[in-house]
Design a protein around this nucleic acid. Structure first.
Length: 411
RNA sequence: GCCGGGAUGGGGUAGCGGUGCAUCCUUGGGGACUGUGGAUCCCCGGACCCGGGUUCAAAUCCCGGUCCCGGCCCCA
């Protein structure tokens, strides 16, 4: 048998229906915030990523040469595509609020929270350099976490590269790379490792500690810090979620220019669930007008880990009905009953095996149906249906013309 | 790319050099029961990851590979 490729996943119905619920929740949230859905290609010319993303990303792409000798790659992220789309259209009315849910690919070692093919929700606001755009975007992220029922298990932290750069310039001049590196990994590395790294790189541990705990911000007056305060207040007011200003949030991406943020579970047991920031230079670098932009991405893999750990990875579907004909008259009649029930919006599964009532009930039960409608010669003659409620075993016969009101309440 | 730990029917497992056709549960298909049996009874299907090696003998020991689960790197 041919095996599934490493790092890829199959989704069987019982799994897929949950995924559909989750994606629908995310998309509905975006729509409620006035974001418009977009979609783009699954492959792009590698140059699109080469320019902006650096070496690491090049090594982690599924790239190949096509029949026309073009070097192309399965997209590892959306930002370059979005930027390309914006750069190509000068007539777009700003600001743009766009979102998409689609697949991405990265050739990495699969492990917890990471696969080679995954879905991401991307949301971007393009054309506004105001803190309002960052605040609206973070609000959207918080709203989605709320809609999914996990806001209580997560924390959202925000920072700014402009602010960090100024602080580094003032207190630890010339150590930008090193400070970024150690802040990003602060909670992942041990105390002795921190100290030796700091010592080796000639960084003052006392000053660095005040970055970590935020003491350095006390009494510091800076317009970018004021923006972070405003963002915090905006999010609190718009979605009732408290976010935290934390200088340890630097994000690894080369192209971020201002506000950066991420959401993670409170115990930091998983990878970050959502991450993003401001990328004001990318669209201009791709040949478009200089256009400020901010966005975030949220992957399905970590989300699934967290929701499963909280028992929230479950399907919340409507009632489903199985039609079980027990004889030839019942089979003919069942198509008519199916038609009537479907016309009032119910999900109706019709038996397609010529087998007895026992096996049909067994099947319906294993498939998780709530109701079975038993149909035979008697029902066909009387124009009725026999409704059996599987959870209780109760059964009653009702006229087909009366199904509207009866089943209406089931939806 | 690097480092650990794993791999027995669809799922979960027992066996860890030879003792009956690889154990048990579950799952799947069919039949009987010809309107209540999501029962019962009967029948059937289905596995030692792949390739080498050691040995009289390998699911079992050794080596390599593949895949899975973690971790590093990195996280767009």
């Amino acid at each position: 048998m041919v095996e599934r490729l490493r790092g890829f996943r199959d989704f069987y119905p019982e799994e897929q229906e949950i995924r559909s619920d989750v994606f629908r929740t995310m998309k509905d949230s975006c729509t409620q915030f006035g974001f418009k859905e977009i979609d783009g290609p699954s492959v792009e010319n590698v140059e699109l990523f080469a320019n902006k993303s650096g070496m690491e990303i090049m090594n982690q792409m599924f790239s190949f040469r096509d029949k026309g000798e073009r070097e192309i790659a399965l997209i590892p992220e959306l930002t370059p595509t979005v930027s390309r789309m914006v750069a190509a259209r000068k007539d777009l009315v700003k600001p743009l609020k766009w979102f998409s849910v689609q697949k991405f690919w990265r050739y990495e070692e699969p492990q917890s929270g990471r696969t080679r093919e995954f879905y991401q929700l991307n949301a971007d606001i393009i054309g506004s350099e105001s803190y309002l755009a960052d605040a609206e975007l973070i609000s959207l992220g918080a709203y989605i976490l709320k809609s999914l029922g996990i806001i209580g298990f997560t924390k959202i932290r925000v920072s700014s590269r402009i602010l960090i750069d100024r602080l580094i310039e003032k207190y630890l001049p010339g150590k930008r790379e090193e400070v970024y590196y150690v802040l990003d990994r602060w909670s992942k590395i041990s105390q002795p490792d921190r100290e030796s790294f700091v010592k080796e790189n000639g960084i003052d541990l006392g000053v660095l500690s005040s970055f970590v705990d935020g003491k350095i911000l006390e009494g510091y007056d800076d317009p970018e810090l004021q923006n972070l305060f405003k963002i915090r207040d905006f999010v609190s007011s718009s979605v009732g979620v408290d976010i935290e200003i934390d200088l340890k949030i630097v994000r690894g991406i080369a192209y971020y220019t201002g506000c950066v943020f991420e959401a993670s579970d409170r115990e930091d047991k998983f990878r970050s669930i959502l991450g993003g920031g401001r990328y004001d230079n990318v669209i201009g670098q791709l040949g478009g007008e200089n256009t400020p932009a901010t966005g975030f991405a949220m992957g399905d893999v970590v989300l699934e880990n967290i929701m499963k750990s909280k028992g929230l990875w479950v399907h919340k579907g409507g009632k489903q009905i199985f039609l079980a004909p027990i004889d030839q008259q019942g089979r003919m009649y069942s198509t008519r009953v199916a038609s009537v029930l479907r016309s009032i919006g119910l999900k109706v599964d019709l038996n397609v095996m010529e087998r007895g009532i026992s096996k049909q009930l067994d099947y319906a039960s294993k498939m998780g149906y709530e109701y079975v409608v038993i149909l035979g010669e008697d029902e066909a003659k009387k124009k009725t249906v026999s409704l059996k409620i599987l959870s209780s075993g109760q059964q009653k016969e009702i006229p087909l013309t009366g199904t509207d009101e009866l089943f209406g309440a089931m939806k």
